[in-house]
């Protein structure tokens, strides 16, 4: 039995060396969360560097970074955006006015407006995690390039992979302390 005295901190790692950009995570998310037409909570970013024919490409499966100092939570005027279990940033629909301050403040462009008029975002599939399942994107990834878990639990998938691999984070200059890790 393992004793973990520190607080839960959910995080996700994306293996940029395994990800082929197949979008299975994007579709699994859309289906799991019954997202409306043209609405997504995750996406694929393809970064190409260099000049033909000397090119390097990095493929990243991306979603909300569930920032520890989230700009969206700070800028929310009604308290609709809040930190839930494991530091996951959620939106309380009954408080959201659709003012879009959170959308404007997010350095990652991770939020959108649901047709019903509230701010919509990735929840790290907390409804699945509470049942002991992995987030839909992690479960669906055919190349197993996504790792999820409590970063403060040394036995979790994410803690193990971050101990053994080199990683980076993106757009950290925004100062929001993101919780997505990209294995390189």
């Amino acid at each position: 039995m393992r004793f973990n005295l520190s607080r839960k901190r959910y995080a996700m790692a994306v293996d940029t060396r395994k990800c082929v950009g197949c979008s299975a995570c994007v579709i699994a998310c859309k289906e799991e969360n019954a997202l409306p037409l043209a609405s997504f909570r995750s996406w694929i970013e393809t970064e190409t560097r260099g000049r033909f024919p000397d090119l390097a490409m990095e493929i990243r499966s991306e979603r909300c970074e569930q920032c520890t100092d989230a700009a969206c939570v700070a800028n929310c005027p009604t308290g609709a955006s809040y930190y839930a279990k494991g530091g996951v940033v959620l939106v309380d629909r009954s408080l959201c006015t659709g003012c879009k301050a959170c959308v404007a403040s997010c350095p990652y462009g991770a939020r959108s407006i649901h047709p019903d008029g509230y701010a919509d975002k990735c929840t790290f599939c907390l409804h699945r995690v509470d049942k002991g399942l992995k987030p839909a994107c992690v479960a669906a990834c055919p190349t197993q390039s996504l790792a999820f878990g409590d970063i403060n639990d040394s036995g979790s998938d994410i803690a193990k992979v971050l101990r053994t691999r080199q990683w980076k984070q993106i757009d950290t200059e925004a100062g929001t302390k993101p919780n997505l890790y990209f294995l390189i």
Partner: peptide
């Protein structure tokens, strides 16, 4: 008119969030 959910406009006045200029502006 800019709000996506106008009926919730009263929610500006059920909270005061010091980190949000929009809140103290309201």
């Amino acid at each position: 008119l800019d709000l996506e959910f106008e009926l919730h406009v009263f929610r500006f006045y059920t909270a005061l969030r010091i980190t949000s200029p929009m809140s103290w502006g309201a």
